[in-house]
Amino acid sequence: MSKTVCPRCATGGALDDYQGKEGGKVVWTIHRCPTCCFSWRDSEPASAIGIGTRSADFAVDAANFDRYVKILQQ
C-alpha cells in the first residue's frame, strides 16, 4: 500500500494512475484515492491538493460514506 495520502479524505494508499513525461523525464504524476475516488496531479497548486492548505469545505468524510446519496435507485 502506497504512503501517498489523499488531500481530500486524508486516507493513505493512493494509486499512481499516470505519469506525464517529457524526453523520458517525469514531469508530474496523477494519483487516485481508492477510498473517496479523488484524482489529482501532484503539480497542482497547494490550494487544491495541499494537505492543510486545501479548503475544508471540500473534504470528504471517509468514515461516513452513508451521507452520500446513491443516484438512480429503482
Partner: peptide, 18 residues
C-alpha cells in the same frame, strides 16, 4: 489507459477529479 489519449486537466479547482 485513458490518460494515454486524453490530455485532461481539472476544470474547476475543487472538482473531484478530471
Amino acid at each position: 489507459n485513458l490518460y494515454d489519449v486524453l490530455p485532461v486537466y481539472r476544470i474547476n479547482e475543487f472538482d473531484g477529479g478530471f
